[in-house]
Design a protein around this nucleic acid. Sequence first.
DNA 1: TATTGTTATACTCTATAACTATA
DNA 2: TATAGTTATAGAGTATAACAATA
Lengths: 153, 153
Amino acid sequence: MTPDLSYLLDHTSHVLRTQMSAQLGEIGLTPRMHCVLVHALEEERTQAQLAEIGDMDKTTMVVTVDALEKAGLAERRPSGADRRARIIAVTEEGAKVAKESQKIVDHVHGSTLDSLPDDERDVLVRALNRLTRGHLQTPAEGPRTARRARQKG
Amino acid sequence: MTPDLSYLLDHTSHVLRTQMSAQLGEIGLTPRMHCVLVHALEEERTQAQLAEIGDMDKTTMVVTVDALEKAGLAERRPSGADRRARIIAVTEEGAKVAKESQKIVDHVHGSTLDSLPDDERDVLVRALNRLTRGHLQTPAEGPRTARRARQKG
DNA sequence: TATTGTTATACTCTATAACTATA
DNA sequence: TATAGTTATAGAGTATAACAATA
């Protein structure tokens, strides 16, 4: 009998996400805010670059940066190189929070992996990495959702 | 360094779901329709029971059964035991389609697992099962989304 | 009073299109 | 012409509330 891989992956990823959201929520972050914060800290990056890294739409990015600015964790700054682009600069407070949130993320991942026997832990990660780079690399095409033109006004 | 388990599980489950949806879509089914069809075939079951099994809301179940009826794959029949309840009866055509869709599901799962080395394959499934029954059994509580009362009329 | 299935609808999430300013 | 970021909003998905029939 074939194991129900869909159920196993859906369930584990769903529960892990709820745990992550709940834990990050304790310090006022969403997973997306954490992602942007961390990658904006690594080097000077524009919204488009951060959207690419986090696999978000640019409009989703706008909302996420709005939230970070409102919370005083990051700011939009004009890019010297391209006056259309905005660099996302992390504030001092934002850097502190990012350190904290990275600890939370590592702890949630770590405690999950620690619940497995040593041999299973390593192989699980290796197998998921292999699938991610191989058979489950690319999403299958969904049916193109036709969309009406937006109302002018 | 802690592996990014969130990314690995999210990505693999997402891609697997798109592949499954695309393959089942070829014969006009959604994953939910397949799920209902298969469990309705096993024994006489009401909508509520099938919703429980597939972890769907009862209103989502209504939509799913509507789709199955429209496609001529299942019918609502009054339950002898409880006149409020409806038994979901699979049609002859529905049984054929269910056989087909089960083949598709097994093939999608099978080809994914077959892309892994033997030793990784078994351990992956064992580890995911262990997480599902253990550390990642229960979703964390989300913030209760307050909802306005519905308009009368 | 509680439950099954239904309808209507409200909410969330995300993506699309159009827009402004640059390039 | 194309791109970065913004705004408004469409659309999918889903969950909530109220309801009718029945328990």
